[in-house]
């Protein structure tokens, strides 16, 4: 090879490794940039309100200059946690069945079904919620508890959301259980364990870190989901006291109001703070799950 060609080759090699590094840096920087941007845009509101006041006040009257995020934070947390409580166990049992008991062709059928679930636009889930879940809750479920509700409430939102996050949680859980070597199952069985004992005492333990990451991804997805939840949650600015009360989650607040009424002083900055809160809460969930996993793996 000529010297020139050799130089050109090493040059190409260098260039290629550099531009990939640039993209990597960009990817790593993005969350920081978003976080910083949100903080910068929302910082104006801190000049007039204290953080505790913003977080814990229940008064949301932008025209009167009152910005209490408490109802929105509570709504968001309630809907998300309820949704994960509903779909978490369903996904876990489905994943165990698919990977431990089902014939291999069933998993082959399920994979595209899961992908379809993941691909349905969220507005369709919202419509489905309005025409099916909302009347079901208001006419069939709430009367059982002697409660009157329009059906546009926390519970409906959580049900719609729980269906939406199934594909994300289930996909990871299937991978988690598939990744456990079959020889480990065989080892437990050969010691005289029943299949259920093996699942309960060995596989679930081995899968625990994966289960935590699956659930925390579900939480992150659920927390940020906007349209479908907005369509069925009721969107009333009031602290919900039970799951049949209407709620007004943070993403819905931003989506409903951004672009309107921005002439109201600090309104723009308050909505940015809502976004920042969303960002931080998801971050905390993620951090928490990482710590749990790391702690667990140290003792495995």
């Amino acid at each position: 090879m000529s010297k020139k060609a050799q130089l050109y080759r090493t040059f190409k090699d260098k260039i290629n490794s550099y531009w990939m590094l640039i993209w990597l840096i960009l990817v790593v920087l993005t969350p920081f940039l978003i976080g910083f941007g949100l903080f910068y845009k929302s910082s104006l509101i801190f000049e007039e309100h204290s953080l505790t006041n913003l977080l814990f006040s229940t008064q949301w009257k932008p025209l009167a200059g009152k910005f209490g995020f408490y109802p929105f934070i509570v709504s968001s947390l309630l809907i998300t946690i309820l949704a994960v409580l509903i779909s978490g166990p369903i996904c876990l049992l489905a994943a165990i069945n698919l990977t431990q008991y089902a014939k291999s062709f069933i998993l082959k059928i399920m994979q595209p079904v899961i992908d379809i679930l993941a691909g349905i636009p969220s507005v369709i889930y919202g419509v489905w919620g309005i025409i099916f879940v909302v009347p079901f809750i208001s006419e069939d479920i709430a009367p059982l508890f002697g409660i009157e509700t329009s059906g546009y409430n926390i519970f409906s939102a959580a049900i719609v959301l729980s269906i939406m996050i199934i594909p994300f949680i289930l996909n990871i859980l299937i991978d988690v259980f598939k990744a456990i070597p079959e020889a480990l199952t065989e080892a437990a069985l050969s010691l005289g364990a029943t299949h259920w004992q093996t699942i309960k005492k060995v596989l679930l333990k081995k899968a625990f870190p994966g289960i935590i990451s699956a659930f925390s991804l579900g939480i992150s997805r659920a927390f940020g989901e906007t349209i479908a939840v907005l369509m069925v949650a009721g969107n009333i600015t009031k602290v919900p006291t039970n799951i049949f009360d209407a709620g007004y989650p943070l993403p819905a607040l931003i989506a409903n109001n951004y672009g309107e009424m921005l002439s109201v002083p600090l309104y723009d900055s308050a909505l940015m703070l809502a976004a920042l809160l969303l960002f931080i809460i998801v971050l905390i969930f993620n951090l928490f799950s990482r710590i749990t996993i790391a702690r667990f793996e140290k003792n495995m």
Partner: peptide, 17 residues
């Protein structure tokens, strides 16, 4: 499980629980 208990299995690689 009774049958399996009659046999101890040693696999290609160790898989400790």
């Amino acid at each position: 499980t009774e049958i399996r208990r009659k046999m101890g299995l040693l696999a290609q690689r160790p898989y400790p629980l």
